[in-house]
Lab assay of single mutants.
Amino acid sequence: KSAVKALFDYKAQREDELTFTKSAIIQNVEKQDGGWWRGDYGGKKQLWFPSNYVEEMI
């Protein structure tokens, strides 16, 4: 599983989504079709976030 870095702040709209700030590192990313991926951040595990808010880390 990979890690991504947030390009923008994102505030969860639902309880199954992540809230994060710009430059946050989201771990254990599971990529899905449809523009939403799952990952771990801030003590939350495998919640959804919009993939267009992040960049992949190499």
Rank of each mutant, 00 (worst) to 15 (best):
A3Y: 13
L7G: 04
K44M: 14
Y53S: 07
M57K: 06
W48E: 02
T19P: 04
S51L: 06
E56D: 13
A6T: 06
V54G: 03
D33C: 13
I25L: 09
V54D: 01
K22M: 10
D16Y: 08
D9T: 07
D9N: 09
G35K: 09
N28C: 10
V29T: 04
K22N: 07
V4C: 15
N28A: 06
S51H: 07
Y41G: 01
E56I: 10
G43S: 10
D33Y: 09
S51G: 06
E30N: 12
Q13P: 03
K1P: 13
L47S: 12
V54R: 01
Q13L: 10
F49W: 01
D16E: 11
G42N: 12
L47M: 12
S23I: 03
Y53R: 08
W36G: 01
P50H: 05
D16K: 05
F20E: 03
K31P: 07
E30P: 01
T21D: 12
D16I: 10
G42K: 08
L18Y: 03
P50K: 05
L18D: 02
W36V: 03
G42I: 04
F20P: 03
F20V: 03
K31L: 05
I25S: 03
K31F: 09
V4E: 04
K44A: 13
S51T: 07
K22C: 09
P50E: 03
W48F: 10
Y10N: 02
S23V: 05
T21Y: 12
L18K: 06
W37F: 05
W37M: 06
Q46K: 08
K5R: 15
K1S: 14
I25D: 02
G42F: 05
V54T: 08
G42C: 11
D16T: 10
K44H: 12
E17Y: 03
G35M: 10
K5F: 10
F49M: 01
K45W: 10
T21V: 12
I58K: 13
L47E: 05
K45Q: 13
N28Y: 06
A24T: 08
K11D: 13
E15L: 11
R14F: 09
V29F: 01
K45I: 15
A12W: 03
L18P: 00
V4M: 12
G43P: 07
V54A: 06
K44N: 10
E15K: 11
W37E: 02
V4T: 05
I25P: 00
I58P: 14
Y53L: 15
D16F: 08
S23P: 02
L7Y: 03
S23Q: 11
P50M: 06
N28Q: 07
Y53W: 07
E55N: 06
V54F: 02
R38I: 09
V29G: 01
E17T: 03
Y41H: 09
V54E: 01
F20R: 00
R14K: 14
A3L: 12
D40M: 00
K31E: 04
G42R: 07
K1R: 13
K22G: 07
Y10H: 04
D16P: 02
A24F: 02
L7V: 09
P50I: 03
Q46E: 05
G43Y: 06
G35N: 08
W36T: 06
Q46P: 03
K44F: 13
Q13N: 10
W48M: 09
G42T: 01
F49G: 01
L18I: 04
W37P: 01
T19E: 10
Y41W: 08
E17G: 04
K45C: 13
E15A: 11
G39I: 01
Q27F: 15
R38L: 09
S23K: 08
K11G: 07
L18Q: 00
Y53C: 15
Q46T: 05
S2A: 13
G43W: 05
S2I: 15
M57L: 15
G43Q: 08
S2E: 10
V54L: 02
W37H: 02
E30G: 09
K11A: 13
R14G: 10
L7W: 05
K5N: 06
R38W: 04
I58Y: 14
G34S: 08
G35Q: 09
K5H: 08
D40E: 03
K1G: 14
G34D: 09
T21G: 11
M57W: 12
Q13Y: 06
F8P: 03
E56G: 06
S2K: 11
V29D: 02
L18T: 02
Q13M: 10
K1H: 12
Y10F: 07
A3V: 15
G43H: 08
Q32F: 15
Y53P: 02
P50D: 03
I26A: 01
V4Q: 04
W48A: 06
M57N: 07
F20S: 01
N52H: 14
W36Q: 04
A12T: 05
A24N: 07
W48T: 03
D33P: 14
K45H: 13
G43V: 07
K5T: 11
E56Q: 09
D9S: 09
N28E: 05
G35C: 12
Q27V: 15
E17V: 03
G42S: 07
S23Y: 15
W36F: 09
S23H: 15
W37I: 01
Y41L: 09
L18A: 00
Y53T: 09
F49I: 01
I26T: 02
A3D: 12
G43M: 07
L7T: 07
L7N: 06
L7I: 13
F49E: 02
D33K: 10
N52Q: 11
Q46Y: 09
F20Q: 01
Y10Q: 02
E15C: 13
D40A: 00
F8H: 11
Q46D: 08
K22H: 08
G43L: 07
A3F: 14
Q46I: 01
E55R: 08
D33E: 14
E15Q: 11
D9L: 02
D9A: 11
Q13F: 07
E30H: 14
G34M: 06
A12K: 04
K44P: 02
K22P: 04
F8E: 09
E55A: 10
K22D: 05
Q32P: 12
Y41P: 00
I26Q: 03
N28T: 01
K5I: 15
M57A: 09
P50N: 06
K11Q: 14
D33I: 10
S2W: 12
I26W: 00
E30F: 14
F20C: 06
